[in-house]
Amino acid sequence: MLITGAAGVVGTMMRSRLRREGRVLRLLDREPLPPAEPGEAVEPVTGTLTDPDVMAAACDGVDAIVHLGGHSRENSWAETLAVNIDGTHTVLEAARKAGVGRVILASSNHAAGFRLVADAGPDGLPADSPARPDTYYGVSKAAIEALGSLYHSRFGIDVICIRIGACFERPSDVRALSLWLSPDDAGRLFEACLGHPSPGYRVIWGVSANTRGVCSLAEAEELGYRPQDDSERFAAGAAPSDPSARYLGGPFTTAALGEPN
């Protein structure tokens, strides 16, 4: 299995959580990766996902890709286009040519960041809510969902797009209490996506079972995801959110476009 962006925040947390007996993790990042731990079956690859030759070599012989690479915050349009959109196209093309049967794409809540939290309803916002991006970054995530749909429909690759909420060790503020995806639940979610026999094309939310949740868990649960964590235990220490929290994307809806944050 290949993980792109393996040295990033989520990639680093998933390295140990996706470790399984008999599974070899091929880890791709432009930054050098920590060496293998005793008993760990990893194949580090240093390179960029925007390079077709690097991606072709990285995809050779793998059965699934967890695509976490790319800019994870707002950046210039040129950088966002080159890395997040064109880079994901390079990943999917390499997967197609190598015969990789399943690709999991890390989308984001910011693909739908201008959705009003008040519109969530009792079952939460559906995972396939139409895109309402809040930034160039959000546009790139909506674009990779569309690319994933194309590569499933045209070439039969199973593609699951995970609209990740806030995947950190703990939520930072009140808004994040509703969107938190614990690292352990993230591992459970990726395993569910990897293990479902025939998912086809899906868009799902990547969140934990949060008491204050505003995103539907139903679509991820259909794949076998069983979240076990709840952000409520962090509520007492959560910082207040500003008025932008009325939107799913929170402060991204007021951030300057194209400026790294």
Rank of each mutant, 00 (worst) to 15 (best):
V10C: 03
G11S: 05
M14D: 08
L18I: 04
V24F: 00
V24Y: 00
L28V: 04
L28R: 09
D29A: 11
R30M: 12
L33M: 08
P34R: 07
E37R: 15
G39P: 02
E40Q: 14
A41T: 12
V42R: 06
E43L: 14
V45R: 12
T46P: 05
L49E: 08
T50D: 09
D53A: 15
A58C: 12
C59S: 06
G61C: 09
V62I: 14
D63V: 01
A64L: 08
H67L: 02
L68F: 01
L68H: 02
H71S: 11
S72A: 15
R73N: 13
E74K: 11
E74L: 06
E74C: 03
E74W: 08
N75H: 15
N75D: 13
S76A: 10
E79A: 14
T80L: 06
L81T: 06
A82K: 07
V83G: 05
T88N: 03
E93M: 13
R96A: 03
R96Q: 08
K97E: 13
A98G: 10
V100Y: 05
V100W: 07
R102T: 07
A106Y: 02
S107G: 06
S107H: 03
S108E: 02
H110S: 12
A111Q: 02
R115K: 11
V117I: 14
A118N: 00
G121Y: 00
P122H: 01
G124K: 00
P126F: 01
S129D: 13
S129I: 11
P130W: 09
P130N: 11
P133C: 05
V139W: 01
V139A: 01
A142D: 05
L147Q: 15
L147D: 08
G148I: 02
G148D: 07
S149W: 15
S149V: 07
Y151F: 13
